[in-house]
Simulated scan of single mutants.
Amino acid sequence: MTQRIIIADDHPLFRTALSHAVGRVWPEAEIAEARSAAEARVALEQGDAEALLLDLHMEDSNGLSVLMDLRQDFPSLPIAIVSASEEPRVFAAASQLGAAAFIPKSSSLDEMRAALAAVQEGDTWFPASETSDDEDLSRMASLTPAQRRILAAIRQGLLNKQIAYDLDISEATVKAHITAIFRKLGVNNRTQAVLVAAKLDVDQPVADSVSG
């Protein structure tokens, strides 16, 4: 069976560079390119993939929430994050959320090949850094897709009635989801929930962990 590697990145030149690295590790692989998380999902649904190389910042995604969503829907798929981020906290968060590798975009071609070779062997590869599990991330990972969509809407500052309209559900359902979100995250209000969710961002530092 032909191996399929999916490269999801919105920069054509970087997709080309990744294709070269993939070709060194999987010389017989079919490479499918995607410019967005939505296109990557379509490619994944078309058949078995050996691995996904995923940029965290595309037109329809920005941060580790896209990793959480794809890990939930494709739990056996090795996902190698490819990102411009150089922050150790992001490396650690990606590892905790189930990424198989984290490849900074500043990596050399040799480093990219080493990371992909580790993924091919069923191992993990991350830049050297001190890592520790973050309880807030574990709590975020426990949210359902519907709850994550509502939390994303809360981060946008939408009111319950606006969320209900956008998601085509009742306000009572929105309130029930929000209650469940607060319980799972161990918070008491929207502000605290937003601070916890900010740990999925990759572009800026986040506040310390928020407890109930």
Results as ranks from 00 to 15, higher is better:
I150S: 10
A100C: 12
W26P: 00
A34W: 00
R4K: 12
D133G: 07
I103N: 06
I5M: 00
Q96F: 09
L56W: 11
I154P: 09
Q162M: 03
R15C: 04
Q156F: 02
T124E: 13
S107E: 11
A164H: 00
I79A: 01
L116P: 06
E171Y: 07
P104F: 04
L67K: 11
S108G: 14
H20L: 13
S65P: 03
A100M: 09
A164S: 06
K161W: 01
Q120A: 14
H177D: 07
L200H: 12
I178A: 00
K175G: 07
G63H: 06
P104S: 04
Q156A: 13
Y165A: 10
E130I: 11
T16I: 05
A146C: 11
A176T: 14
R183S: 15
D208Y: 07
E28V: 09
P88L: 01
M68I: 07
K184W: 00
L200T: 14
L137E: 05
I150G: 03
P27V: 02
L44K: 01
P27N: 05
S95M: 13
E30F: 00
S85F: 03
G122C: 05
A51I: 05
L44A: 01
F126P: 10
R35F: 04
L116Q: 10
I31K: 01
P75Y: 02
Q162F: 00
F91R: 06
A115M: 10
A180T: 12
S95F: 07
T131L: 03
Q156N: 08
E121C: 09
L77K: 03
D55T: 08
N188E: 13
S170L: 09
N188Y: 07
P27E: 00
A117I: 05
E86L: 15
D69K: 04
D133V: 12
N62H: 13
D73E: 13
H20G: 08
E59M: 11
F102A: 08
S142F: 08
H11V: 10
D168H: 12
L67T: 03
R155P: 03
Y165P: 01
G23E: 01
D168Y: 09
Q46L: 08
I81L: 10
A180D: 11
F91Y: 15
V174Y: 02
S211A: 06
P75R: 02
T124A: 10
Q192D: 14
A38Y: 06
A49F: 02
V119C: 09
L13N: 14
E87T: 11
I5F: 00
A29N: 08
P27D: 01
I79G: 03
M140E: 06
L137S: 04
I178Q: 14
M68C: 07
K161D: 05
E130A: 13
A114R: 15
D110K: 13
L54G: 07
T131I: 01
S65V: 08
Y165S: 06
V22S: 00
T179D: 12
P75F: 05
V90S: 09
S108D: 08
E111L: 08
Q204D: 13
D208M: 03
T131A: 13
P27Y: 04
R71G: 04
A152I: 05
Q192M: 07
A34K: 00
R41N: 04
S19V: 00
M140F: 14
H11K: 06
R4N: 09
K184P: 07
L64G: 03
A100F: 11
R149E: 12
D110G: 13
Q192E: 15
W26T: 01
S76L: 07
Q147H: 09
